[in-house]
């Protein structure tokens, strides 16, 4: 059963702003799903609809089997939420925040254990008004963990965290997912998503432009994998073009540059060349996540598009 399923989910704000346009999304039980997209792509609006903060103008969304437009409040006891752009209750202590969440969710967690888990046990009885962004984020994450949720919705969870905090966050997310919780991880920080997510969806202009594993998305990219080899001497017939998965080969003196369709092809290239010549150096690079991201959201192609329009 899908944990999150949307059909034609649409949100149009007054004035005709189409924040989310007929979104079809399916997140399976137990997976860590990365939700990527530049600011303004409709990520937050989608999350807001999935949590019932905002009602869709069209289409349907079910979370944990329940329609978000129906009596959704009870479903939320099975969801942990780390929202974006939140603020804590300045006059309440960290422990009071957790106690409130535990009571409201009818959970039986120990606030101290959670504070320990997110690394702010020493600040348990301090009012959150004096918390740094990182501490607030840790507490908010702790609040999301209360009640062992079936679904964890994390909106930009690592903002404000230092590198150690980010690592701990990732470790905790993996641990929780292993225990069966579905994680919906929204972020604009690509390496973060790559580090934890099984699958990613890329939003752009209110549309989901791609959904797949990061490796698979990379494969769909032209020149996704690139390798430069330096040889002692280049034999006359290298025959690299005939190799399966090789897109293009260019030879400049003793340097051979090869564009491959997939990362795995590069090993074949090295083996193939190694049998025919002596490799003195090799530099391998994959398309960066930024390239990947931009190719789907069309961010950097603005110049090219303009050029194309001028030519047309």
């Amino acid at each position: 059963m899908a944990t999150i399923e949307t059909t034609d989910l649409t949100k149009e704000y007054p004035g005709g702003v189409l924040a989310v346009d007929s979104l079809d999304l399916r997140v399976e039980e137990g997976e860590i799903f990365g939700f990527l997209g530049p600011n303004g792509a409709g990520k937050s609006t989608t999350i807001n609809m999935l949590l019932g903060y905002v009602s869709p103008t069209d289409g349907r969304a079910t979370v944990l089997g329940d329609d978000v437009r129906a009596d959704f409040a009870t479903t939320r006891s099975r969801i942990g939420v780390l929202p974006d752009g939140y603020s804590l209750y300045d006059r309440l202590t960290a422990r009071e925040h957790l106690e409130w969440v535990i009571r409201t969710k009818d959970a039986d967690d120990d606030p101290d254990a959670i504070l320990e888990q997110v690394g702010i046990a020493d600040a348990a009885d301090r009012r959150t008004g004096g918390f740094s962004k990182g501490m607030s984020q840790r507490l908010a994450f702790g609040m999301a963990l209360v009640g062992d949720p079936d679904l964890l919705v994390l909106d930009e969870p690592s903002s404000g965290l230092d590198p150690t905090g980010k690592q701990e966050l990732r470790a905790t997310i993996r641990e929780i997912a292993k225990a069966g919780t579905t994680v919906f991880f929204s972020s604009h920080i690509l390496p973060e998503v790559e580090a934890v997510c099984d699958r990613v969806g890329i939003m752009s202009d209110g549309n989901l432009v791609a959904v797949d594993s990061i490796d698979a998305l990379r494969e769909g990219l032209d020149g996704a994998a690139h390798i430069d080899l330096t040889l002692e001497s280049v034999p006359d017939d290298l025959g690299l073009e005939r190799l399966n998965g090789v897109e293009s080969v260019s030879i400049d003196g003793v340097k051979v540059s090869v564009d491959c369709r997939r990362t795995a092809v590069k090993a074949d290239v090295v083996r193939h060349v190694g049998e025919r010549a002596t490799i003195t150096d090799l530099v391998s690079e994959d398309a960066s996540l930024e390239d990947l991201f931009n190719s789907y959201t069309g961010e950097t192609s603005d110049d090219e598009r303009q050029a194309a329009e001028v030519m047309a």
Partner: peptide, 17 residues
């Protein structure tokens, strides 16, 4: 306005609650 409503509404509270 501050955004703490996101916690209030992210929990099993109805608008009436």
């Amino acid at each position: 306005e501050t955004g703490s409503a996101k916690f209030l509404l992210g929990l099993p509270n109805t608008r009436r609650d």
